[in-house]
Design a binder for these strands. Sequence first.
DNA 1: TCTTACCGTAAGTAAAGCCTTACGAAAGAG
DNA 2: CTCTTTCGTAAGGCTTTACTTACGGTAAGA
Lengths: 110, 110
Amino acid sequence: MPYEKELAALSDPTRQAIIQRLRLGPQNVARLAEGFPISRPAISQHLKVLSDAGLLSVTPNGTRRIYALSPDRMRDLRDWMNSLWDDARGAFSRAAHDLAKEGTPNDRSD
Amino acid sequence: MPYEKELAALSDPTRQAIIQRLRLGPQNVARLAEGFPISRPAISQHLKVLSDAGLLSVTPNGTRRIYALSPDRMRDLRDWMNSLWDDARGAFSRAAHDLAKEGTPNDRSD
DNA sequence: TCTTACCGTAAGTAAAGCCTTACGAAAGAG
DNA sequence: CTCTTTCGTAAGGCTTTACTTACGGTAAGA
């Protein structure tokens, strides 16, 4: 299970919205929380999940904490998605080929 | 929130393992369940989640149901990851540039 | 120093998720 | 028709998750 934590972090709609926000640029917590219908501590908890997954980086600046997207981990995820897609294509056309020949691909009995 | 359901589907370790299994080729439910420590109905429920997310396709064959990866939706996800990564890179270097100039990117005071 | 702004964490609660067993429907063999 | 295989779904229990309010700690300004 290669990217369990990262995908779990991205699976929440609020965290996805946070990611979308940070696509425009780094932001501190208070400003980030302004656009959401939930409390600021809830945003902090989501930011912790995203940070623990390596998707965000933090830069303290005075009392503020600036959060930004971490391109490195994001690139790893993208590469994994790429390989997944390649295998999906391969398995798909192979299955289509097999089905055209005999009808059932995995017709083995142990 | 563009790919909420797809990412939620991929976030579970069991479902990730199912995906890994199907990278080798399509399989029916009973054979798929053989390699897991959980019951067959649990596998069926996971397969439903993955199918509802559009990541799998089903092909009935007698009493069996052959599950396979759906390359289309997988490609969409990959493309979204690509754009996400590009924006992350852009925001990152822009932030680095701003920090080099003044120190704080979002320095507005309400 | 005193006050204000910013933020993380703890405690508690309501909701969602994952697993199990039990059951019923559909397809094929005899 | 009867029996078996394959599979999806319903019901219930248990764990995890996401939210709230309350609180403490740190940095900057007067």
